[in-house]
Design a binder for these strands. Structure first.
Lengths: 201, 201
DNA sequence: CTCCGCACTGAGCGACCGCTTACACTCTAG
DNA sequence: CTAGAGTGTAAGCGGTCGCTCAGTGCGGAG
């Protein structure tokens, strides 16, 4: 538990705050934000309900901390790929591999990140919406590059980008520890599917 | 309102029950099941909160009525396609076209159907889970037929079926009245994407 | 006309929610 | 040794939730 939360949020201090974030992730992923009570979260973290408010001003602020961090990790993953390789085909392949593998390996966090967005208060929602727009924009640019260079053939760049992201995001909904494929294997398989979908030879 | 609800649920009687289902769909889609109160639903239907309990034994029963009906419509749509055409390629094309168009045109209902599943009580959940398994099974069979006849090339039939459904389901999450493409246009575009993804020439 | 059955309402019950408060304990600095 | 900041708890407040119930209005059968 401690190691996982330290792995996920290395720069969150103190450790109790990380324990609360982990308990929040697990509760929100299982029951949804609104069906989760502060007593659930505190209980899962092994503390009294009031302890939550020592580290976070509200239940919504806890969700925001989880959601913003998850979106920042996803954006960082995308930009890391763009920095590591060039060319639309190899960029797209690696992007899908990493994106899908992350949503499988971290499917609990990813479920909260992707499906509890609307529970955020308006102001906090705008922050993560901005991050989401950046992620979508990066994907769109790779596809547009590929279309221009003749590597990809798609009817509409916007729809294609949506489709690529849909495939990756939805992995968080159905992936579980019991899934036969490892996150890495699944990423490679999805990479192939996406490249064919985009009309790469 | 009345016409839409009569269109969606022609065999639900009386009309007040349909108004409540429509109000439920809109409230659940916008805020989520747990964030919606029975006062919200009754208010949107223009009635007092107690009126809901004349027609449904609980808030969860209202969700179940919506969810089961939506899943039955989706399964009927899939089986209708299988009855109308033969051959894996044409079946898959038409299946995706109709599936996507339904999730776009009825994106409010579809959002409740696809994303409020987990709010159902265990017993009711099992009923819709059975319908979902049937839908997935039909898609898997079409892909398996195509692989056998050489029309499709995929690494893993199960993953491919998941991917096809992910693409369709996720349309409900992002489609809105302001989307440039009509549901039918979007369906055709997605049909092409999916056939290429499955390795059809 | 009376009477009954049904759809619906106003008022409100008991439970549980997010969050606050008053207080206790444990470090560390001076 | 003391002072104070930081971290935690037990108790509970005000509000809202899903749902109930006694009663009202109304349309159709006799």
């Amino acid at each position: 538990m401690t190691t996982l939360s330290a792995d996920l949020w290395p720069d969150v201090q103190p450790e109790t705050a990380r324990r609360l974030m982990l308990a929040g992730v697990e509760s929100f992923a299982e029951r949804g934000y609104h069906a989760t009570t502060t007593r659930d979260i505190a209980g899962a973290a092994g503390m009294s309900p009031a302890a939550l408010y020592v580290h976070f001003p509200s239940k919504a602020a806890l969700l925001f901390a989880i959601s913003r961090n998850g979106h920042e990790q996803t954006l960082a993953l995308v930009e890391d790929v763009l920095g590591r390789v060039t060319g639309p085909v190899e960029r797209m392949r690696l992007l899908v591999e990493d994106f899908v593998a992350w949503h499988a390996r971290r499917h609990t966090v990813a479920r909260v990140v992707q499906y509890e967005l609307n529970a955020l208060p308006e102001k906090e929602y705008q922050v993560v919406a901005q991050l989401r727009r950046k992620i979508e924009q990066r994907v769109r640019e790779v596809i547009a590059d590929g279309v221009e260079s003749g590597a990809f053939t798609v009817g509409d760049v916007g729809i294609a980008a949506r489709a690529v992201l849909s495939l990756g995001v939805d992995v968080a909904r159905w992936y579980s520890e019991r899934t036969r494929q490892t996150p890495t294997e699944l990423g490679k398989e999805y990479g192939e599917l996406v490249l064919r979908m985009l009309g790469a030879s």
